[in-house]
Design a protein around this nucleic acid. Sequence first.
DNA 1: TCGGTTGTCTAGCGGTGCTAGCCTCGGGCC
DNA 2: GGCCCGAGGCTAGCACCGCTAGACAACCGA
Lengths: 190, 190
Amino acid sequence: MSIQQRRERERAERHRLIVDAARDLAETEGWEAVTTRRLAERVEYSQPVLYSHFKGKDAIVSAVAIQGCGDLAQTLAEARDAHRDPVSALRAVAEAYLNFARTRPALYDAMFVQRTDIPFGTPESPPELKAAFGAFVSVVQPLAGNRDLETLTEVLWSALHGLATLTGSDRLRPDHHNTRLDLLLNGLLP
Amino acid sequence: MSIQQRRERERAERHRLIVDAARDLAETEGWEAVTTRRLAERVEYSQPVLYSHFKGKDAIVSAVAIQGCGDLAQTLAEARDAHRDPVSALRAVAEAYLNFARTRPALYDAMFVQRTDIPFGTPESPPELKAAFGAFVSVVQPLAGNRDLETLTEVLWSALHGLATLTGSDRLRPDHHNTRLDLLLNGLLP
DNA sequence: TCGGTTGTCTAGCGGTGCTAGCCTCGGGCC
DNA sequence: GGCCCGAGGCTAGCACCGCTAGACAACCGA
């Protein structure tokens, strides 16, 4: 069985290599530069090899997105754990989220903008996704009062997502960034 | 000069025809179905004719987006003018906005999701865009208190945009739609 | 050593946005 | 009235895209 094990190990390694290459390429040159040809060149295999790992290009993007959710979850959890005061923790998590979207726009795009078949908001959601949403839930919880926790968290996330995407596509005035976040948090979770 | 006038008139008419065809095609089959070949076929001209009217495909999408902003501005204004009470007017405008995004997803996508070079939030913004934003401003104004009107409007718009895009891409739980809007409006503009 | 399977590659299909260069048609001038 | 010439539309094609059929090599088990 050792030979098969080695093969599976190599296969898993190559799988990871493809996802990493796709993420790197997207983050440095944008998703429009991520073509199956360039990707194949990066991993030093021919195009069809990609299709033995993934059903198609969309599946590669999805894999990158899920990996990104893991990154985001960790980032948010760290921001949360650096503060004891609930209001400070909320603010820190919100800022960390917007910072993630600003510094890794391509990754953010794959996670929350592009069409995907990753299931959101269901028990079947990938654990990385649940972890990221859970980080939001944990900072909203102390401030939710008698409002429904999960729904309120969805509202907060949606509002931050709106700020992130509209800011990132230059549809909001570039100054006033902090003022907008103040207004949002003071209104929604005072 | 009459001949030149006729030519310019025909040219303007064909310009309109292209934009309308692009919008129709996008709304019925999605933007991925809007190719220069299919568009040319629809307007019964060859591909290069498109490029004598627009710099490229992106410019056609932008034209559709600006036209869509005009539609949206009108929709929002009508919703606003149907209510005298400021809170009701705000609610109506917010619902009209989300309804627009839900019923015309491709148009909404061109306006507020896809990359574009339309200038947002500046004096050079197209009048259709200013009109749409102005409709929001006018319903926020009575409820803004001493907060900065324009910035607060940006926050409201961003939050609604977040709800619209995450709902439209199945990233929020499909029920709870009204609850989310309640939570947002009660928090932001009570 | 051989047979067969497993896995990778080359080549190509039908599509994309975009453009070079030909050619026709019609208005303006003699 | 007839000719010339330029505006403007067309055909054809470029380089690229996602994806796949089928040839071929390498390696494992008997």
